[in-house]
């Protein structure tokens, strides 16, 4: 293991990019990805089913100093609204935390990485028109 603080998993009770994925499977993917990266995975926090609620993710902000970062199941569990999403991602980046996204195998460590996430969100939205 690279460090002792570890990474908190983050899964959701809502649909991910239009599909319902059981929480057990989301956790399985996160655990598998953590194993691949050889990082310590700490039990996941589960976001609520209510649309547009990010109460659990926002609570992770106050816990983040005791963590190395977060392993999200997917980038599509992030807020859809660019402003809200970037505010959140920037908060963690400024704290020098690493955000991993297990399904897409993406990492966010700096502002450049956030732009990459923006592009994916944009293409996803635009291609649905």
């Amino acid at each position: 293991m690279k460090n002792s603080l570890g990474y908190r998993g983050y899964i959701t009770s809502r649909k991910v990019d239009g599909s319902f994925i059981p929480q057990t499977l989301q956790n399985l993917k996160i655990r598998d990805y953590a194993k691949k990266l050889k990082i310590e995975f700490k039990l996941s926090a589960t976001e609520y089913v209510m649309k547009n609620s990010y109460h659990v993710l926002n609570s992770l902000k106050s816990e983040i100093n005791q963590l190395e970062g977060i392993i999200f199941f997917s980038i599509f569990s992030l807020p859809e609204k660019k402003k809200n999403r970037n505010e959140l991602l920037k908060f963690f980046v400024m704290k020098k935390k690493i955000l991993y996204f297990a399904l897409e195998e993406l990492t966010v460590k700096n502002i450049r990485d956030i732009k990459e996430i923006d592009e994916i969100f944009f293409i996803k939205k635009a291609s649905k028109r």
């Binding site: 209510m50 990010y54 659990v56 926002n58």
Partner: peptide, 11 residues
């Protein structure tokens, strides 16, 4: 008042 509190900690 759920959405008035932005995080579980605040709630």
């Amino acid at each position: 008042k759920f959405f008035k509190y932005k995080s579980t900690n605040k709630l």
